[in-house]
């Protein structure tokens, strides 16, 4: 495991960006890791910009900032454009093409499209489950560090409603991610 793993998720308020970061953090605590998770947001509950920054480590964490994220989940164009250049060559950007329309092909890192919103709408008729899909895809990426079942269990604790839908959406995201 890396000394320090940085995960950034960013998008609009209401997309579940904070819950997603919190879920990864909860899963890491359950596995005995040290965790920090920062959330920054505007005044609005919905529609404003939101970012969560998660750092996982086996040692105590000093800086809680994700300056060179290993994984960046972009759920809006503005989030993508704001943070894409912080991802190093060995990092990965995961984006939802429903929200991020234009991709910068000149970036050195891998970029993986996960159509989370489409999957959510197609299968559950509600875009609200797209963060469960996105989380499932991240769980696949982070599998060497966080156990999939622990992530799912933490997610169902963090969001105790619509458990069946969330579980299914999570699994679909997990299956969608090809690495």
């Amino acid at each position: 495991m890396k000394d320090r793993l940085e995960i950034v998720a960013s998008g609009f308020g209401g997309q579940g960006v904070v819950r997603l970061g919190q879920t990864l953090g909860e899963a890491a605590v359950k596995q005995g890791l040290r965790v920090t998770m920062l959330k920054s947001h505007g005044t609005e509950m919905r529609g404003g910009y939101v970012r969560s920054q998660v750092v996982l480590s086996q040692k105590a964490i000093d800086s809680p900032m994700c300056e060179t994220p290993d994984v960046f989940l972009a759920l809006s164009s503005s989030a993508y454009n704001r943070f894409k250049d912080t991802v190093p060559a060995e990092g990965i950007i995961v984006y939802d093409p429903a929200f991020v329309e234009e991709i910068d092909a000149s970036l050195p890192c891998r970029q993986i499209a996960v159509p989370a919103k489409d999957i959510a709408v197609r299968n559950f008729k509600r875009p609200i489950f797209s963060n469960a899909v996105a989380l499932g895809s991240l769980a696949k990426l982070l599998e060497t560090m966080l156990e999939k079942n622990v992530v799912l269990e933490s997610f169902l604790e963090v969001i105790p409603k619509y458990k069946d839908e969330n579980r299914n959406a999570f699994e679909m995201g997990y299956e969608t991610m090809n690495i």
Binding site: G25, T36, M37, L38, K39, S40, P64
Partner: peptide
């Protein structure tokens, strides 16, 4: 500050 009170940690 906001990061201290709103931020999460183990």
């Amino acid at each position: 500050d906001q990061l201290l009170t709103d931020g999460m940690e183990d």
